[in-house]
Nucleic acid binder design. Structure first.
Length: 421
RNA sequence: GGAAGCGUGGCUGAGUGGUUGAAGGCACCGCUCUCGAAAAGCGGCAGGGGUGAAAACUUCUCGUGAGUUCAAAUCUCACCGCUUCCGCCA
């Protein structure tokens, strides 16, 4: 959410931002609506002031006749007040809907573009493996090694279902344990977050109203979070944090649920795109400074890079272009891992910052050294998602005999150096 | 799931229709006193919005929402949450 005052004073910047993101929203209509809102608001307040004044007078000793007359007068005020309040409510409904659709302004450094094909490659790391044999995909590899069961997964869970089993399960635990140790060295507080979250908080992160189709819903009007960003941002909703406690640095683990509506034909097989997965997420709340946001954004992104580097998987780093960016984001980097069988990089992690766009919606503020109150800045970045990471892991480290070499850093967590039959 | 009770400021706790945004206490921040500290005394201390250059004026918020009333923290209804007891349960 942007500040309505900012929107009024910086119409052109806001319009240009929406345009860069290819998001349609009529700022002029919003401002006309806001004019009406302010007009009604001041009338409502004037009427209330009258009412309060009379009420105050009537609290004291008043002659009966005067009192009766006052009540009569206030009846008229009341009728108009009711009418104006109703009108204001109607305006506010429309106003809020529009305000939720106004996107955050992308940073100058965000590349122009329409979709993910226009994302800008920033760097590549690692040597792509050269195989002396025809490499297999992760489905074939993991099935042969009895690490995964898609057939029964589909039987039990439905489309996109899977069971991880044996070394597949152990490898997942190894990654979680290693990742916990790795990221906690970066001074995060570890959390396990709920995935069932009240609907209102999805507006805070920007997942609603835009992505409603992609979110599972319970019969109690709670939604299943597709990332712990939602519960972790909601954690400090409606709070004023003392500046001494900033920055807040959280490493949250949670299951993640995504309906993948609209991607029915994409990645229908394997572990790339599933409805239920697990993710360790980095999240930071910091003071309201662009420089701080940029600093932490680079840091979070670098953490992810370092983690992937320690596993030894080749990756590509891209800056998300305007047209591929979500409404709430100021800037995003994606980390894409090499998938040998597909011969391309696939997304594994995403690091973004939001300035105070999310915290305005969550009403998460902090008090600085002078006692002044500001909306905090928020950032988040994937630490590691499972099981998607297994795709690149097993495909890059497969051997001619179908076994999989375990990256050295993971070996102590799984107790072996190779997964064999 | 059933029953009873309860939701007031950072905490505690008064307040059952009219100068109550809310007494008192604690915590916190200034100042006085002191060599310093403690104690004591004095003062300050919620957040949001509107108009305004500012001073200031004004409005909203006592779990949330709706209602009754000229007027609601106080009355009514619904919802949410908490506590205790029973039931069920990893």
């Amino acid at each position: 959410m942007l500040d309505i005052k900012f929107i009024r004073e910086n119409k052109d910047i806001v319009k240009a931002g929406a345009e860069k993101k290819h998001i349609e929203v009529d700022i002029d209509v919003l401002i006309v609506l806001d004019d009406k809102r302010l007009e009604l608001l001041s009338r409502v307040e004037a009427l209330r002031a009258e009412q309060n004044k009379a009420s105050l007078a009537m609290g004291g000793n008043v002659e009966h006749a005067v009192r009766t007359q006052m009540i009569e007068e206030m009846r008229i005020v009341k009728d108009e007040l009711k009418e104006k309040e109703e009108a204001l409510r109607e305006i506010m409904k429309e106003w809020k809907e529009l305000m939720f659709r106004v996107p955050n302004i992308p940073d100058m450094s965000v590349p122009e573009g329409n979709d993910e094909d226009d994302n800008k490659e920033l760097k590549v790391w690692g040597e792509k493996p050269v195989f002396s044999f025809e490499p297999k995909d992760h489905i074939e590899l993991m099935t042969a090694l009895d690490m995964v069961d898609f057939e029964r997964g589909t039987k039990v869970h439905g489309f996109r279902g899977y069971f991880l089993k044996n070394d597949g399960a152990l490898l997942s635990w190894a990654i979680w344990n290693y990742a916990m140790e790795f990221f906690l060295k970066k001074k995060f507080n570890p959390f396990i977050a709920p995935a069932i979250v009240n609907k209102e908080y999805f507006y805070g992160t920007g997942h609603l109203p835009g992505d409603a189709e992609d979110i599972f819903q319970t019969q109690d009007d709670q939604y299943l979070a597709g990332t712990s960003e939602v519960p972790m941002m909601a954690y400090h909703a409606d709070e004023i944090i003392p500046y001494t406690e900033l920055p807040k640095r959280y490493l949250a683990f949670s299951p993640c649920y995504r309906r993948e509506a609209g991607s029915h034909s994409k990645d229908v097989k394997g572990l790339i795109r599933v409805h239920e997965f697990y993710k360790l997420e980095q999240l930071i709340l910091c003071e309201a400074s662009h420089e701080e946001s940029v600093k932490f954004h680079e840091e979070l992104n670098r953490n992810t890079e370092e983690f992937i580097e320690s596993l030894g998987i080749p990756y590509q780093q891209v800056a998300i272009c305007g047209g591929d960016m979500k409404g709430a984001h100021v800037k995003s980097y994606d980390t894409n891992l090499w998938v040998p069988k597909e011969g391309k990089y696939r997304e594994i992690a995403s690091a973004s910052y939001y300035h105070d766009f999310q915290t305005r919606r969550f009403n998460t503020r902090y008090k600085d050294a002078n006692g002044k109150i500001y909306y905090a800045h928020s950032l988040n970045a994937t630490a590691i998602p499972t099981p998607r990471i297994l795709v690149s892991l097993v495909e890059n480290f497969q051997q001619a005999d179908g076994s999989i070499k375990i990256p050295e850093v993971l070996q102590k967590y799984i107790g072996k150096d190779t997964i064999t039959k």
